[in-house]
Amino acid sequence: MKSGDVVSVNYREKTTQPTRPHVALPSSWVGGKISVYSIKSVIGEGGNGYVLLGKYNGKKYAIKVLKVREGQGTVSVTSYFSGLSKEAANLIDLSEWRGMVKIYAVSVDNVIDEIMRSNDSLYLSDPPRLIMEYMEGGILEGAILNDTLFYSNKWNDAVTRVASQVANALQYVHSQGYVHLDVKPNNVFLLSPVRTAEEMEKVEVKLGDLGSATRIGKDVGQLTLEYATPEQIVETASPKMDVFSLGMTIYVSLTRRVDRPDTEHMRKAFSLASKGMMKEARREVDEAKRCLSSWEVGNGGVGLLRDPMLKRMLSPNPWDRPSMKEVTEWLSNL
């Protein structure tokens, strides 16, 4: 498992279904078609999918082809796709809001079992996929890694503006009864390319990848360990999980560091939980929380890093974190 990968945590459901990694290369689709979409290039790859640039009737689309494999610790890949299929219409409706990357279609029906039985030709011709709005500006991570932007004296203000827009989007997601569960720089998209710090200050962003979104109180399907809160491994979905992940996104945006002190305990907790060893997993989660409680987030920092609200967002205890409404008001008033 690579740093930043999305991992599946459907450990509550046991299955005897045979599992195998799917090894298709994303370049396999380039130059061909998926449904009516001509595939022009590979935009990126994450822990749970490949993102391709598709065109249809002269318009560009981002096509996320979902990986069909049992990732490290995954117990049931079919349960994830089944849930995604059932929630498809709701997620499409959710993405209509102005601060969300629009989902045009979700196609995951009736192919997963066949693909898991080594039907590679079906995976290549009709892969499970999300058809999404194409964002010309790329992802927030690209801006973070741009030295011109990152070392500008306007970067703190730019991050504040971006975080404020993401918080607004998350507040809407929560108001509709869902938790995003995978907030991170790779899932924050810029509407247009940014070349200067001045442009970054004015940039419009959208929150994308609702593929991990889950109804409040339901089991967590997927997470990214570097941005997830410890309880996300052993508890059901709560809006306070998104608060923590947005806090981590702000921290990483300002520092370029993914150096949270609980990383090893998080990995152990996930591994144990995915094997059904919940008592042992909870012990590791408690250790992760202990490490986080002594984390001096703002040491040596300025601006948002030294704001007590960021420390609250990254609290190991969900009841100590602010609501997303509080976060939205805080950011809009800075």
Rank of each mutant, 00 (worst) to 15 (best):
A169F: 02
A169R: 05
V173C: 05
H174E: 00
H174V: 04
S175D: 13
Q176L: 13
G177W: 04
G177P: 01
Y178F: 15
Y178R: 10
V179L: 05
V179H: 01
H180S: 05
H180V: 03
L181D: 03
P185Y: 11
P185T: 08
N186F: 07
V188T: 12
V188L: 08
F189G: 09
L190A: 08
L190I: 11
P193D: 12
R195S: 14
T196S: 12
T196C: 03
A197P: 11
E198I: 06
E199M: 03
E199V: 02
M200L: 15
M200Y: 10
M200H: 10
G208S: 00
L210Q: 10
S212M: 06
A213Q: 03
T214L: 07
I216H: 02
G217L: 11
D219F: 13
V220Y: 12
Q222W: 10
L223H: 11
L223K: 12
T229K: 06
T229E: 15
I233H: 01
V234W: 01
A237Y: 06
A237C: 09
S238V: 11
S238P: 00
P239D: 11
P239Q: 01
D242H: 11
V243P: 07
T249K: 00
T249R: 04
I250Y: 06
Y251L: 01
S253D: 03
S253W: 04
S253T: 05
T255Y: 08
T255A: 00
R256W: 00
R256K: 15
V258D: 05
V258I: 13
V258L: 12
D259A: 06
D259C: 05
D262E: 14
T263G: 04
R267T: 09
K268S: 14
K268A: 14
K268G: 05
